[in-house]
Each structure stands twice: as C-alpha cells, then as structure tokens.
Design a protein around this nucleic acid. Sequence first.
RNA 1: GGGCCUGUAGCUCAGCUGGUUAGAGCGCACGGCUGAUAACCGUGAGGUCGGUGGUUCAAGUCCACCCAGGCCCA
Length: 941
Amino acid sequence: MDYRATLDLPQTKFNMKANLSQKEPLYLKRWEKEDLYGQIQKSCKDKPLYVLHDGPPYANGHIHLGHALNKILKDIILRARRMAGFNAPYIPGWDCHGLPIEHNVDKELGAKKDQISKLSKRGACRKYAQKWIKAQKEEFKRLGVLGDWDNPYLTMNFPYEAAIAREFNRFLLSGSVIRNKKPVYWCSTCTTALAEAEVEYYDHTSPSVYVKFPVTEDLADIDQALAGRQVSIIIWTTTPWTLPANLAVAFHPDFVYAAVAVGDEVWIMARDLAESVLQRFSIAEYSIIATFSARKLENRRCRHPFMDRDSLMVLADYVTIEAGTGCVHTAPGHGADDYQTGLRYGLEILSPVDNQGIYTAEAGPYAGLQVPAVNARICEDMSKSGMLIYKDDIRHSYPHCWRCKQPVMYRATPQWFIAMDRSGIREKALESIKEVQWTPSWGMQRIFSMVEGRPDWCLSRQRTWGVPITVISCRDCGTVVKSEALARKIDELFLQEGADAWFKYEVGDFLGQGAVCQQCGGNEFLKEEDILDVWFDSGVSHAAVCEERPELRSPADLYLEGSDQHRGWFQSSLLTSIGTRDRAPYQGVLTHGYVVDGQGKKMSKSIGNVVAPGEVIEKYGAEILRLWVASEDYRDDVKVSDEILRQISDAYRKIRNTIRYMLGNLHDFDPGKNCVGLQELPDLDRWAIARFEELKEKVVSAYERYEFHSIYHSLNYFCGMTMSAFYLDILKDRLYTSGTDSHARRSAQTALFIILDGLIRLMAPILSFTAAETWEHLYGLDPQKAPLSASVFFAEFPAPVAGLLDQEGEARWTRLIALRSEITRALEIARREKIIGHPLEAEVLLLMEGELGDFMTREWQTLKEISIVSAITGVDEFPDVGLAPFFSEEVQGLSIMVRPVDGGKCERCWTRSATVGTNAEHPLICERCCTILADLGLKAE
RNA sequence: GGGCCUGUAGCUCAGCUGGUUAGAGCGCACGGCUGAUAACCGUGAGGUCGGUGGUUCAAGUCCACCCAGGCCCA
C-alpha cells in the first residue's frame, strides 16, 4: 500500500520563488485600474482622521534612493494607521518653481533664452516641471506607494499659486514684510543678479593692498605704551574699490593683537602675523610695544583712510590668521560676511555702485567711475596721502558670471524680507517648537537654535520662474500699496490664470482706474519684478493644501522628511504658519537620515557609489526596497549596499517560505467549519498563539512609535525561530499523519490559521505586495476577479486575545524549551558520532535529579513531541552500552544519553516503534498509524 | 571653522536609570534530512563595545579629548 497517499501533505500554488520584479507591476496595474486608494478612502471616511502631509520633492530629475526611503516610510506609516482604524489620506505633492528648473530650461533654450519673453520662458519651465512630475510619479507608484496620484498638489497649479500670493499678502498687510538692502552676486556686464549656483570660480589677478586706518582716540587705557602715539589699524584687501563702502574693521575675538612701533608710528595687527607682514613690507626695524585682546578694541572708532567718516571696530569670528593682517576691511554692502557683521552692529548696508558697476554719488570723489577699473586710481590716491603701505598682485580663485565669464561682485540691492522680530514671529515660533512632538527628540534642539539665530527671511529672487512678489508701489515716493482690495484682485486673477497674470496685466488692471498714492497723491505705480523664494512656495502648503483639500486638515498630525529640512521645509512651513495663523502647521515632525553607501559615505556620482532605485527594483523588487527601509533605523543615516540588499532578500525568502508552508498546510481548512475552540486546543497550539499575541502587541506598538526596524527583527525572529525552527517543525507529524479531519490536525490548523491571518495583517504595511498575494491564497480569492474590498488592505490589525496561557503555563514552556535545547545539543553530538542521523532514529535517555524528575514524569510526552524523537525514557542510571552521556551545563541536574531506538521505522509516520510489524494487515506501519487508518476507514489493498 | 547627530560581531539591530563570562537574527563553517526540496532542521566559530585619558570598588553605559562619517551653516 502507498501509505504516502494516506498523509495530508502541504499543498499550495503559492510559489516559493516570489518573482517580485515581474509580479509587482501586475498588482499595481489592477490596483490602479480599480482605484484601490479611492476605494479604501471611501470605506474609511467615517473613521478618525490622520493627516500625514507630504513634503513636495523638487520636480527635476529621476528619483533617487533618498526619495524612495522617504516615500516608503510615509507609505508604511499611512498603511499602518489605516490598519489601526484611521482614515489616512495621502495627497502627494511637487515643488515646481525655482532656479534649477529655470537653469535647465535655459540650457535647453540655448541662445534663444535671451530673446523670448518672460511669459514664454515661464511656459517652458512649466512644461519642463510637468515632464519630471510625470516621470517621478511613475517611479513613486512603482514603489507601491498608495495615494491620490491622479490629484496631487503642485505648487504651480493656479489655485496653489493664488494661495502663495494670498499668504504673501497676509504677511504684507500684517506689516512683517520689509524692504532692505542685501548684497547679492551681481554681474555688471549682464546687469543682473546671480544666484550662488550661477557663479563659477576661476583664477583671477587682483591687487593686494595694505591700508592704514588711523585711530583718532587715545588708546592709553589699553596699554600705557600707546599713550600719545599715532596709532593705525592695518587692513588688507584685494578689492580696493570696496573701500569707499567701508564702514568697519573686524577683529577676531580670540586673537591676540600687537601694537608694532615702526618709526614714529604704531601699527596694529594680529600678533602672529606681525613678523611676516613686516617682512613683506621689507621693514626690519620695528618693535612690539604692546599686545592685547581684540575685545578691548570693540566699538571704538578709527578714521576712514579717505572718506570723511569713521569706521567702527567690530569682532567677527570668520577673521582668519591664514592671510592678511588679522584686521579685516568690512563693507556690509559688498560681502556676505560683512553683511552679517553689519546687521549685528547696526551698520548701514552701503553699496555706492549702480547696476552697471559705476560709482554713485555716495562714493564721493569717485562718483561716476567704473568698478573695478577704479582700483588703480584709489591706490594711487592712497599712496599720495600716505595711507597705502604696500601694494602687490595676487592670483586667487574668484567668482565669475556663468554667462559672460566676467568677474562678478557683491552688491547690495533692495530685497524683500519677512522680519523675524517685528511682529514676534521668532518668539512665537520658538514657543510653538516646544509644543511639537519631534522624532528623534534632538530635532527640537536643532530647529530651535536655527530659528533662534537666523536672520530675517530674504524672500526676493531676481529670477523668472516662480510666483511674483505681489507688491505695487508708488513710482514717486515708493510707498507700498497695502489694501485688501488689491489682495482680492490678485487672488481673483491668479485663481483664473495663475501667477502669469502678474506679468500679463498692467498695474492699472490690478489697482483699478484712477488710483492715487495715499502718501503723495501720485498716480503712477510700479509692479515688483522679483519672485518669491521657493521655500515660501512649499512653506505655505499647510494653507494651500491641508486647509483647502476637504479630506485633509491643518495642523497636520505629521510632517516626515530628511533631517536637512530642519533648515528647509519644516522651518519655512513653521514661519509662514506662525506669521499668519499663530501656530505650527504640524503636531509632530519625524526626520530620517540620509542614504549612504555600505561604508557610511555619502553617495556621489564622482565616487561612483550611487545605487539607483530602478536597479534595485529590477534586481530584487520594490518589496525588497520596502523591507530594506523597514529594516534600517532611519533616525541615523541609512546604509545601502549589495551585501545589505542580499541580506534583506534572504530575510524575505525566509518569511515567504514560512508563510508558504503555513498556507500549504491550510489548503483543506475552512475556518467557518473546521475551527477548534481556543479552549479545546492542545497546549502547544495555545502556546504558539500566545507567542503570536506577543508579536502582535510588539508590532502594533512599534508601528505607533514609528520603530519599523524592530518590526523587521520581530517578524524575522517569529518566522524563523518561533514558527519554522520550532512550532512548524514539531507540527509536521500531527498535520501529516493524524487524519484529515482529526481533532489533532484541525487544532493545529486552527492555530496556523489564526497566526497566518494575523501575520499577513501585521506585515501588510511593509510587505504590501506579499501580503496581498498571501491573503488571496489564504482566502481562495481570484487575484484578478475577487473584489478588491476583500483584499488585506481593507482589513485591520488583529484584535488582542487574552487568557491563552497563564503565568504557570508560560513558566512550564520556558522549562520545556530549555530541556529541548539540551536534548538537541545531545542529539547533535550523537549525530557527529554517527550514532543517529535523523532525530527520529534516536531514543533519548534522561537522568534527572530531584524536582526535575517529577516535572519529567508529568511532561515526558510533550517533551518527546517537541524534541521530535521516537522515544524519551527516564532512567535512574545509564545502561553500560559504551556511549558517553552528555552532562548539561544549562539545566542543573540533567544528563542525557542518546542511542538508536529499538523497533522498525514506520513507513507512514517515520517514527521508530516496536509496534511496527505487529499488525498482520499493515506489517510496515506502527500501531498508532494502524488506528488512524482504521478510523479513516482505509483498508490495505 | 561652528551647531546638531552617529560609530556594539561580516550585515541589520538589542543592551532602561553604570554592577555577574556583552545578546539576537541573518550570513559563514560543519553536520543532518530528503514528505516545506533552488526548501527544511541542528551545532559551532565570530566582538580589547571607533581610539586615548579620566571619574568610580565597578563603564559598552558618566566626563574630556581625538579619529571616522552624516546633515546644516560659515
């Protein structure tokens, strides 16, 4: 007789090989076609709302792994929230305006870029952004990220552009928008401002000059040696043309400065530079008559070498000892550092140069001269007046215009700012930061100190592709028109035609006929030409999206981006919300680290360590990428390498095989008919369900705390250890041999069913594709025809079940498992010695002392079952059969001897038993199997 | 150069307020099974906890400095 046919072996069509890269697209296609996202949202519209507001990626280029990490994290959180009973919509967005796009469009346009109109350029930029949104959308969808992809928010959509202008106008009307000068890179050849990204550095020869700034007051209080001396500060500069704009001299707060006597003069410079500087001047005769800290100089005054005014002595920590004299010429209108220093000391932002590089009247004697050609003239004059000590040439790296390749300058021009302290924005922002839940917690400190120390927010950009700064001012007196009516008009036009309207229409179209200036009565007005910083665009998404979309709300529950956004979007969102609504736009902020390579180095094209998401998906599947995201502790930087991905892939296979095996053993199980009540389950099965309960609790709470890597580990351990290596291995005998409809088998299946059903739900937020596939197999759903509403995505996390195993039961199992692990150790030794092969060939003799013996008297049967051996026998002493016993170190008073068991191998259940051969009808099988066959009504043929 | 953060076995992670021989899974090595089979089971070997110095009876855990790496500034 073929006894194999009387067994219930696992059967399943669930493939061992996942074939993810081929199968994922099929699932995605159906989910999209039947609008899985829409269906889910419909089904949960009455549940409590959870809003994760998407930070918009920039619509330029293909997505990289950083994007994938970010979107997958969001997707995992949202899916987990849905399964925890929430309505969790996802509206993805894109950041569309800005320089990089304009830049690339300029490149594509080539020479044409200067001929076309502003509106055509904007049209081309819009098209360019659209192209990349389309590409990125497909790439995001491929990751399995579920959301309203057909209705994303774009910062260039008309309603969004209108919202940007609306929010700007709120700031304007509230009085926190101010106009100030700030230095920017300026090309006087092209007469245009340049962004950082538009300057290129080349070597350039500049004059290198050392200039005296005479000190008029007596410095005797610093050092008596200076009493009555004629003292000068010696500065060094390579841009003499900025001297007319000099307003200060900066010293390093921590350097020691020296007063050097040269002839009858005293020169001040950094002590450590004095020797080399004087050597350069070819001055051999000098003596240091005093040294002192720069702090003693702060806020004193010296005389400008040729302008009729004083310069302030200030401290600045960017002053270097690498070059110059340690005394830095400071012109707040002509340098980034100088500007910051100027702000700190309340200096004027003086920049007496017009847009063609010609000195204005403010430059005094030099008005009308061209910069930087004027350098020679200035040096000549200073030489005559004795203020120039030394002049030389220097070759150094200097910024040049990317278009005309000419050297550029820093020039202060009027810009629009949001004032941080006028209406208490900074203060209120700092207060609200403390109310937000920051994950990890150090995020609070980080953004707090950034907001605390940041300057006013410069909103203006001298570019084309963006939302205009909607300011109209009087041509005659410059007064800014601030009116609700104007704001409404702008809103109206922008809603209909987008921000292009600003460039399309005349001032009169916005102001209406006959408008006059409230200040001077003038009737001619100017439209601002600059556009807004793109951080303002995305910063108002809480207003443009969360408040506008009916399915969302503001403040959002969570913002989730990389840690660079503490300076970026988290801050711009916070400031725009505080400025107009007096509260933060989010209740929680979660940050993740950056994706780095296997060594922890950042990815860069030049190093060649970049891993593209597409390659990973192609090779392993999006599911592996998702599992990778879950496996890493994203609060730190996230490493990726082939080794790591291989590891994730191995872990996936283990999980998949475990699931597959469970499915295989449930092929004939109908939960409606075959379930065994929890109270009737054998102890082992209750133990297994208790372990699953433990997992459930851990996983559900880890989702709540956004600690996905611990879910990954828990899932691995549960599938690999608890299930595969222990429970499932033990269950084989019961599942295969006890008879299809036996209580023993149905019990095991009940446990398997409960566990598998729950396991699929727990892993679904991460392993979405596999969860969907498994669910179909478990419930016999046709992958193409069964309604999506029956899919795992409409299920929730399994509810907690209590009372499976009391404390005593848990303790009992802990002990049994410890004993089993000692037995397997002994079996392994026996296997090495070729005494046995498979554990079922073994009889295990246990010698136990004291209470342990009593425990065994009660539990030997369970121990035999879980050890998967043919016999366990308690003995008082080991028989003398030439075998060495194993003395346990882990379990006190236990020693174990393993010997081949007596009796033949049952052809059916493979257990060795003395009863094999005793039944005449079935001479090849054991008594237990004979009984089962009889129960099944099977007769030997 | 400054601010914030990170550094535990080959890999991914645990190690709470300092306290016995630093844990897990995977990988690896070796062995078994052939009724989860391009599966499954078992055993084992892997760490001077980035480095140095300090506090302490006692430090992976506290302090200082240094090194490496990341983000944001300059």
